[in-house]
């Protein structure tokens, strides 16, 4: 019997842990006939951003996290994070995995690890304390809490004032009125208990932004397993694990949206809003895809493949 340690920086009750990581370890155990078991550590080994290197360096055997926590490191994640790519995390995640597997991994960003999954959460929407949801200049001058990376640029491009801060500080920023609103998926608004702070929600077809996640394994640990064990792990990870993670985000997004019933009025963005945002954001999208090309991968082709895969999956193929 081989034990693999799993580093966790989230509370055990977080759905990413309880509905993805824990089931993943169970599936690995089952697929290997009980030969490979996991030990999920009770407390974090370090800040979330340190977790990719924990897997590279063998501090833990399996780690998960957000690529964006290591700014500058992953440029191919842009493909999955730019605006308007998809409404379902499951569809986006599966498509993202396929693109990663056939094109993006050649960029070499993940060469230090064995990748078990790459996936995205649900689409990022707009939430405000107040305001006219249909106003064409909805975001103009609004102070929006944002994390780093793409969402910062999206917010400032649309005329908002980005207020920086980690997601754990979102409540503090909103409840004290430092921020007027936030760009978040439904799930996060609910998870960080922001619903009482917000009144207006605007859902953006395809999402205003997205966030890319990874689950990776230490290479040496994977190589130390028997070929049968490796094949067993491959059979329950990759596209299957990415799909499971995407499904989880869809489920909790649905719960988040349901929890907003009667507290936040969520309406879709108007056609005029979409037209103006799409044209305003096109230069941002182009620049992000150009960054992907810097890694040696054909950025526009990868982007096209992602769109094609998403279209295929949405039409039920």
């Amino acid at each position: 019997e081989t034990t693999i340690t799993v580093a966790n920086w989230l509370p055990p009750s977080h759905p990413l842990v309880s509905d993805v990581i824990v089931p993943m370890t169970e599936q690995i155990k089952e697929a290997t006939g009980g030969e490979v078991v996991a030990n999920i550590l009770p407390a974090p080994l370090g800040p979330p951003g340190a977790h990719f290197d924990f897997a590279v360096n063998g501090v833990a055997d399996i780690t998960f996290g957000v690529q964006g926590y290591n700014p500058g490191r992953f440029k191919t994640t842009n493909i999955a994070e730019i605006p308007f790519i998809g409404d379902s995390a499951e569809v986006t995640s599966v498509a993202y995995w396929r693109v990663w597997d056939s094109m993006l991994k050649q960029a070499g960003e993940y060469d230090g690890v064995k990748v078990l999954a790459v996936f995205t959460h649900g689409p990022g929407e707009i939430f405000l304390k107040d305001g006219d949801a249909t106003a064409p200049d909805l975001l103009d001058g609004k102070k929006l809490r944002v994390g780093g990376g793409i969402v910062h640029e999206v917010a400032s491009t649309l005329g908002a004032v980005p207020v920086e801060g980690p997601s754990s500080k979102a409540y503090e920023l909103l409840s004290q009125g430092v921020a007027d609103g936030i760009l978040f998926p439904y799930e996060s608004v609910n998870f960080f208990k922001l619903i009482p702070q917000l009144d207006v929600g605007v859902s953006v077809p395809g999402g205003l932004y997205n966030t890319s996640f990874y689950i990776v394994m230490n290479k040496a640990k994977f190589d130390s397993l028997t070929p049968e064990q490796q094949a067993a792990i491959d059979s329950v990870t990759g596209e299957a694990l990415s799909r499971m993670a995407g499904q989880m985000w869809d489920d909790v997004d649905a719960k988040g949206l349901a929890a907003m019933e009667g507290e936040i009025t969520v309406t879709p963005a108007t056609e005029a809003q979409m037209a103006s945002w799409q044209s305003a954001l096109q230069p941002v999208i182009d620049a992000k895809i150009a960054q992907v090309s810097e890694t040696g991968v054909d950025g526009p082709a990868a982007y096209q493949m992602l769109r094609d895969e998403i279209a295929k999956l949405e039409s039920g193929e």
Binding site: V56, G72, R73, G147, G149, E164
Partner: peptide
């Protein structure tokens, strides 16, 4: 060694892209 590792993948700050 850690600094060299971070330098190896071009680790930087989020918004100003200051190398770490």
């Amino acid at each position: 060694i850690y600094a060299a590792q971070i330098g190896g993948y071009g680790g930087s700050t989020t918004n100003l892209a200051i190398p770490i």
